[in-house]
């Protein structure tokens, strides 16, 4: 099955023309055929410029966004917390990515997250609304998810979860750019890129927590970002994922970027003094062949 067939199923289901739940069984590229994963990281105070630096060695935004593409930039805006508290993706990082995608000629750029706290409070207090409102471009759509647009998808390659409700725009995006914030999480120790994809899920997301690592890997078989940019400009070391205490925050002024979602998570884990194999979702996704977790096999470039 190819991507076009899958998108046809999504469209038919959304239009009520088909009772059949869309199936997703597009495989990942076999590890042997893949280029070694490339990962960049950079440190600096100017977050907009930092985005350009990490994107440079990866080929720039033009590598991921073609003219007319439907682009999803998916930050973490899950919590009613301000930027300093490190619970949400830094708004300046998101803004820079959106601007680069627009510059690259994207047909539209969608920014959204299904929040945990009240939607409007999260969008406003995360600083996201302020940061994005300045971009006067009609192609940018920053919106709250619409309940009507979650599509059930059968996850053929899933081991722990067989069906998920996924936001339609996330499925249909030509280019999906994942922009998580790196932070502590009680259950999974850290929340990084794979966990951030939960923001496109509908329904009762809490059940993901029963076997979270494997379920996140299963979700990652469907939501495959072309680019992952992990925001470690400041990281939350404790009382995550929402924090609230500045004593738990450490400023690193760092961004990590990769085309390989597993490699990005694996490297970001080391910023907390942990090893990639300590994060279940990284191990599970690696097991499904979704990316590289062995740091020695990743080409890491300091940009």
């Amino acid at each position: 099955m190819d991507r076009r067939e899958f998108l046809r199923q999504v469209a038919l289901w959304s239009a009520g023309l088909s009772a059949g739940v869309p199936h997703f069984r597009i495989g990942a590229t076999l590890a042997a055929e893949r280029q070694p994963s490339l990962l960049t990281h950079a440190t600096g105070k100017d977050y907009q410029e930092l985005v350009d630096r990490v994107l440079g060695p990866l080929g720039g935004m033009g590598k991921f966004v073609r003219r007319g593409d439907k682009v999803v930039v998916k930050p973490n805006i899950g919590w009613d917390r301000n930027p300093d508290q490190a619970a949400n993706t830094h708004p300046q990082v998101v803004r820079a990515l959106v601007e680069r995608a627009l510059d690259a000629g994207a047909g539209e750029v969608l920014v959204f997250d299904r929040t945990c706290n009240e939607e409007r409070r999260c969008y406003i207090n995360s600083g996201m609304e302020d940061a994005l409102v300045g971009i006067k471009d009609k192609r940018l759509k920053f919106f709250h998810p619409d309940d009507r647009k979650y599509v059930p998808v059968d996850i053929e390659r899933g081991k722990a979860v067989r069906r998920l409700e996924i936001y339609r725009d996330a499925l249909e995006a030509d280019s999906y750019i994942n922009v998580p914030v790196a932070k502590h999480h009680g259950l999974s120790r850290l929340t990084l890129g794979l966990k951030n994809s939960m923001g496109v899920l509908g329904g009762n997301r809490g059940v993901m927590h029963h076997s979270l690592g494997q379920k996140l890997a299963d979700l990652a078989t469907v939501i495959q970002p072309k680019l992952t940019v992990i925001d470690a400009t400041r990281i939350l070391l404790n009382n995550g994922p929402q924090g609230g205490n500045l004593a738990d925050v450490r400023v690193l002024d760092t961004l990590v970027a990769s085309t390989d979602p597993v490699a990005a998570d694996a490297y970001a884990t080391t910023l907390f003094g942990l090893k990639p194999e300590e994060i279940e979702s990284t191990v599970a996704a690696y097991g499904l062949g979704l990316g590289e977790m062995e740091l020695t096999k990743i080409r890491i470039i300091k940009a």
Partner: peptide, 20 residues
């Protein structure tokens, strides 16, 4: 014996009232 901890994740106090 099933992992969960959704309550702890959402507990909003800066020093979480729900611990594990």
């Amino acid at each position: 014996g099933i992992p969960c901890m959704v309550c702890e994740e959402h507990c909003p106090t800066p020093d979480k009232a729900i611990k594990f």
